[in-house]
Simulated assay, not measured.
Amino acid sequence: MRRGLVLVLVLALLFGTPWAALVAVGPDWPTPVFVLGTALFAVVLLAFPWLMVLGHGRRHVDWASKFSDVTLGVVWILFVWTLLGHVLRLVLALAGVENPDRARIVAVVVLVVVAALLVYGYTEAMRVPRVRTTEVTLPRLGRGLDGLRVVVITDTHYGPLERTKWSKGLAAAVNDLDPDVVCHTGDLADGLVVQRRGQVDPLGTVRATEAKLYITGNHEYYNEAQGWLDHMESLGWDPLHNRHHVVERGGDRLVFAGIDDPTGTNLPGHGPDIRAALAGANPDDPIVLLAHQPKQVSVAVEAGVDLQLSGHTHGGQIWPFHYLVRVDQPVLHGLSGHGPRTQLYTSRGSGFWGPPFRVFAPSEISVLVLRSPR
């Protein structure tokens, strides 16, 4: 009952705020405009939760996912900029502009801004991610591994929108970087292997001189995590399902360990297990840990990990949603320090979840150049 009430209140706020400001209160539109606007908000509001469940529930009906995802993105941006529109409303009021002109000006400006952001956000979401290069010094890294190039992709979220061409572009962009190690830190796809394998398979063309490593994110556990682990292995990736892989160069060694997402505890044989992941590893070797969520860094600190690689946050994806992400996660994106030794790199993600928009939160292919102390 409480969850249902919260859902109703959230939907009422998201849809009701822009409806009141743009249609009902102040603009004094002609009756046909008022009726049409009200009917549009009402129909979308009533259809949205049903289509969200139909699309993202067990049935995975893609047309319903597309409609509900786009609706979620549009209504969020509309809600945010309707609130910001009250600043313009105040300015116009101080300038002596009366209603309904004041309310109509604000409504038009908000709609123009929202339309522009939707075009910009869609373009950002659908483009091949920009490359973001960061040098990371690991005090325990041997000289033989100095300059090791680790490329991180994450949160590709292959889903109801057909993105096979985008996937091929992503793989080509990674190969152009001449990586030594490529890591995919989870949230590979939304849906079953049989539904999304066509989009995922171009990742089989990714090349790395040392290793291609993959871990699960939370979204794999909403569908078929083991199926995705098996499929990525068939594409030549090494699934670090609570295990590790050692890279050796010039007589020096670096341990790449991977742990499951915490969501995996609901599936037998899954769930994060750092002890199993590091079992048999030399404690004197530096450790890079693949863990989907940044908040798993607390486990990394306890285990003496040197560098954790994560995604999950999407950098907020649609501004200002990043404020809500920070409530749940310690870091939004970039390199950060934790504890006496552990560093954490959080990627903004290579794809997007749900709404096909990225507003002021660009996607990325992360290149980490590992350095030993000089």
Score class of each variant (00 low, 15 high):
residue 340 P to D: 13
residue 312 H to R: 10
residue 343 Q to S: 13
residue 324 L to T: 06
residue 318 I to R: 09
residue 332 L to K: 11
residue 348 R to I: 04
residue 316 G to W: 13
residue 332 L to D: 14
residue 315 G to L: 09
residue 324 L to G: 01
residue 274 I to Q: 00
residue 283 P to H: 09
residue 289 L to S: 03
residue 324 L to Q: 01
residue 318 I to E: 09
residue 317 Q to S: 11
residue 308 Q to A: 06
residue 337 G to H: 12
residue 285 D to C: 07
residue 328 D to L: 13
residue 291 A to C: 07
residue 295 K to S: 11
residue 326 R to V: 00
residue 284 D to S: 14
residue 301 V to N: 02
residue 282 N to D: 15
residue 326 R to M: 13
residue 285 D to M: 06
residue 279 A to Q: 11
residue 314 H to Q: 12
residue 307 L to G: 04
residue 305 V to E: 07
residue 292 H to S: 08
residue 337 G to A: 12
residue 331 V to F: 12
residue 276 A to R: 14
residue 281 A to V: 13
residue 315 G to Q: 09
residue 288 V to F: 00
residue 343 Q to D: 08
residue 306 D to K: 04
residue 344 L to W: 06
residue 296 Q to E: 15
residue 326 R to A: 09
residue 317 Q to D: 11
residue 284 D to F: 02
residue 279 A to N: 06
residue 298 S to D: 13
residue 295 K to R: 15
residue 326 R to G: 10
residue 272 P to A: 02
residue 331 V to C: 01
residue 332 L to Y: 11
residue 314 H to N: 11
residue 296 Q to N: 13
residue 295 K to F: 07
residue 347 S to M: 06
residue 314 H to T: 11
residue 293 Q to L: 03
residue 274 I to L: 13
residue 335 L to G: 07
residue 312 H to V: 08
residue 346 T to C: 12
residue 303 A to R: 06
residue 346 T to W: 04
residue 293 Q to C: 02
residue 302 E to H: 00
residue 329 Q to A: 03
residue 306 D to Q: 07
residue 325 V to M: 12
residue 325 V to S: 10
residue 300 A to G: 13
residue 316 G to F: 12
residue 322 H to Q: 15
residue 324 L to V: 14
residue 272 P to R: 02
residue 340 P to T: 04
residue 301 V to T: 05
residue 302 E to K: 03
residue 293 Q to F: 02
residue 281 A to P: 02
residue 311 G to C: 06
residue 322 H to S: 13
residue 291 A to Y: 09
residue 295 K to Y: 10
residue 278 L to E: 01
residue 335 L to H: 05
residue 293 Q to A: 13
residue 333 H to E: 15
residue 306 D to S: 07
residue 279 A to W: 05
residue 320 P to L: 12
residue 271 G to A: 08
residue 349 G to L: 08
residue 348 R to A: 15
residue 321 F to Q: 09
residue 323 Y to V: 12
residue 311 G to H: 06
residue 324 L to E: 01
residue 330 P to W: 03
residue 276 A to G: 14
residue 309 L to I: 14
residue 282 N to A: 15
residue 281 A to Y: 04
residue 289 L to Q: 02
residue 281 A to K: 04
residue 288 V to P: 00
residue 349 G to K: 09
residue 301 V to M: 03
residue 271 G to W: 11
residue 322 H to K: 09
residue 273 D to W: 08
